[in-house]
């Protein structure tokens, strides 16, 4: 029982940290630039494809990961300069339409280049199997993901909470006009944040690629989850994104693990078998609706 609980806790942590990587970039773009980016999930997909393609070419997962992240960052830069810059001042509707268009273009272009079948991306040989920690087994690769997630979260915390750039970013998130008035190059800051967000997407895509699948449309399901995370956490707040990501990761994992058993104890077998999985799959949305009902600005509102 302890093993089961511990393993599920690790699973929740791993899932939550990966969501955090995606949500961090999204919440900053959203919070500072007030820009809805539905194509954030596409950056995650393109990042995963870049990593997979580079890893195949270089025959090394780590080289592929590095190259893929760099490639996605460049793509992010080009996108910011050519398109997003024009979107910041537009209303949410225009942003939704433009980034929805980007999703269509990204999905179709990836399909054109790499074909409709999923791309193969294997973890480094040494990490393919399980490792034993204090008498129980856990996939080595998932531990690596957790380590990466914790490192990035720590780094982001230092960067945002302690550094000068972080101060500007936080200032930008809570009051854009005032920050501009203070003479900070908000334009450059926007570009940097966007590119950084794209790189984080590629990191998440590259790390999750071997675990999940590198395929067309992989960005959409994860995009919705990332949105749920930043809405729960409060838009523009890195701390909120971290807390939200961990809540969503844990609730989703525990819900899938415990709900069916719990319902079986409470309800007739037939009803439990139907209701359990259904309820588990909507749990996080229920959670989000519930939180918004009581705190319409999320848990940690960045704007006063």
């Amino acid at each position: 029982m302890t093993q089961l609980f511990l393993e599920q806790a690790l699973n929740g942590l791993q899932f939550g940290l990966m969501l955090f990587l995606l949500a961090a970039g999204l919440t900053l773009v959203f919070g500072i630039m007030d820009c809805i980016n539905l194509a954030h999930g596409s950056l995650y997909m393109v990042g995963a494809y870049f990593v997979a393609a580079a890893a195949q070419a270089a025959d090394s997962f780590w080289l592929g990961l590095g190259a893929g992240i760099a490639g996605t960052a460049v793509l992010g830069l080009l996108l910011e300069l050519s398109l997003f810059r024009q979107l910041y001042r537009r209303d949410h509707l225009a942003q939704v339409l433009a980034t929805f268009a980007l999703i269509l273009i990204a999905n179709e272009t990836v399909r054109l280049i790499w074909g409709p079948a999923p791309l193969l991306l294997n973890p480094p040989e040494a990490l393919a199997g399980p490792v034993e920690i204090a008498g129980f087994f856990y996939p080595a690769y998932r531990l690596v993901i957790i380590a990466f997630g914790l490192a990035v979260a720590g780094l982001l915390y230092l960067l945002v909470a302690k550094s000068r750039v972080g101060m500007w970013v936080r200032a930008g998130a809570s009051n854009r006009e005032m920050t501009e008035a203070l003479g900070i190059n908000v334009r450059g800051l926007f570009t940097a944040v966007f590119v950084f967000g794209a790189a984080l997407c590629a990191l998440a895509g590259g790390l999750l690629g071997p675990l999940l699948a590198v395929q067309v449309g992989m960005g959409e399901s994860v995009l919705i989850l990332a949105f749920v995370v930043i809405i729960i956490g409060g838009i523009g707040s890195i701390r909120g994104a971290l807390v939200g990501a961990l809540i969503v990761g844990t609730v989703d994992t525990l819900g899938r693990a415990l709900l069916p058993t719990l319902l079986r104890a409470l309800l007739p077998a037939d009803a439990a078998a139907t209701l359990g999985p259904a309820l588990a799959s909507i749990l996080i949305y229920l959670l989000m609706a519930g939180i918004l009902f009581f705190k319409p600005q999320g848990l940690f509102p960045a704007r006063a």
Binding site: L83, A98, L102, I103, L104, I105, N107, E108, L112
Partner: peptide, 18 residues
């Protein structure tokens, strides 16, 4: 791959016929 064409068209609408 008509979605590419559609996507480009939508972008054009956003940018030029808002």
């Amino acid at each position: 791959h008509w979605h590419i064409a559609l996507g480009l068209l939508l972008l054009a609408v956003v940018l030029f016929a808002p």
